[in-house]
Design a binder for these strands. Structure first.
Lengths: 244, 244
DNA sequence: GCGCCTAATTGGTTGGACCATTGTGCCAAT
DNA sequence: ATTGGCACAATGGTCCAACCAATTAGGCGC
């Protein structure tokens, strides 16, 4: 019954009218992320609505991360906007406990496995060469710094997601990834966090290169499993520390 | 009362202060989703901020789907709220072409299978009884109206997702579900849309009741497969029609 | 008891005012 | 000529008081 998304189209709402007009404006002016929007007062006058209404509309975009406001400076675009965007506000209660972090991994488990399957099914030769390049770069960074490199690691996975041909994978998993790392920059004092996942990157790639969807799923699952394991170890670590 | 803990971050924003106070109020009153919040004017007076500020704060919660406003009636809680909630709003460009629709199904394939697994692993006896009740209701609606009922069908799946213990499943899948149905209330002229998925609801339930995660995954995948098939038939239908 | 109508309540909108922060450009001191 | 500080204008943030629009509750007549 409580559907977090469904919001009967309030076409009569002034806010939506303002936002739609703003989408058109952004499109007609060719504004890109980082560019400044007109001031609230200007929008208010131009759209023939009160400044309060403009503010309410901008507040909504701000909450969705589409826009950033800087007092004294202006309002700046942060992402591409289009009409009929689908907004998907994900909410986790109390985001920094063990359970919530595990929840993000459960989502990744389902999605990364599926993405690996699709990637293995659809990858062209060029795609595979590109992914291999990312893999080699990741491995090099691993040996250089003697540990996982978040950036190169992410680039590799990103290449896999994009090859799946479905942009939703990248966006949703990226959100999970950010949720996970927001509180665990140095997760729970586990020094070699992510270390165990290293070998599975290559085995995953091998399955993709061999167009083996079943194997790719298996390797992706193993990879996630190591992360889950790290998280469990970290949680145990924390428990032990709090006892002393 | 406000937590005696030293306020970690002196909230620079009035909005956040209002929302934090509101979280405490909801907690102290034991309000649940569906309950009514105090009116904006009351909050304004009690919190010693202007009604404008209260409105801006509530607008943010509304955009996150935490709260619903009804003019002339009041503001109602839609989800549990806590301090330190983690918000991750995603905005997806929603297309209404065949490819985009299929993309939502690929996401659902990965997530519904995973949710079914977790549900089968974690369901208590009460959970199973509740899910069965939803199943029976869905089957009754099916036979009554001789076709799938979106509402009862969704209720059944919802029960499964919630039993998984991970709120993200419901949120993400609901977004996919809405994206799918936004343009295809009567998808592509396929009259018996969803018809083929009917039997798999019970087989899925049986696996869950038997605590068989592997079987549950298989049945969930079959269920999604029928929807994908319907979509393909619809697309073919449309193609044929446009030719004439 | 039933149905309609009125009045109070509540969110939505408006206009105007002022505050806090930021950016800019001028001006003086070096 | 460069640099530093200062005044001022622009911009988002907050406030107030009133009115609009939808909803709800209560009372009135039947």
């Amino acid at each position: 019954m409580i559907n977090p998304i469904l919001s009967p189209v309030h076409t009569s709402s002034r806010d939506d009218a303002v936002l739609n007009a703003l989408v058109d404006f952004v499109a007609s002016e060719g504004l890109k992320p980082g560019d400044r929007l007109p001031t609230e007062r200007v929008l208010s006058e131009y759209l023939k609505v009160s400044r309060t209404t403009v503010r309410e509309a901008l507040t909504r975009w701000q909450e969705l991360g589409l826009v950033e406001r800087r007092q004294g400076s202006g309002t700046y675009l942060r992402a591409a906007v289009t009409r009929n965007m689908l907004h998907m506000p994900l909410t986790l209660p109390s985001g920094n406990d063990f359970g919530s972090l595990m929840h993000t991994l459960e989502i990744r488990r389902g999605l990364e496995a599926e993405a690996a399957v699709l990637c293995a099914e659809r990858a062209s030769d060029e795609d595979i060469a590109f992914i291999e390049q990312k893999l080699i770069r990741m491995e090099a960074a691993f040996h250089e710094r003697e540990g996982m490199s978040s950036e190169e690691d992410w680039d590799f996975h990103l290449a896999v997601f994009r090859t799946s041909g479905n942009p939703l994978f990248e966006q949703i998993i990226a959100a999970m990834y950010e949720m996970f790392h927001r509180f665990w920059e140095h997760p729970l004092g586990v020094r070699d966090f992510g270390h165990a996942s290293f070998p599975y990157h290559r085995t995953l790639f091998n399955c993709i290169a061999a167009r083996d969807p079943v194997g790719a799923r298996a390797e992706a699952l193993k990879l996630i499993a190591t992360v889950e394991d790290d998280l469990r170890r970290g949680a145990a670590n924390l428990k032990k520390q709090s006892k002393t």
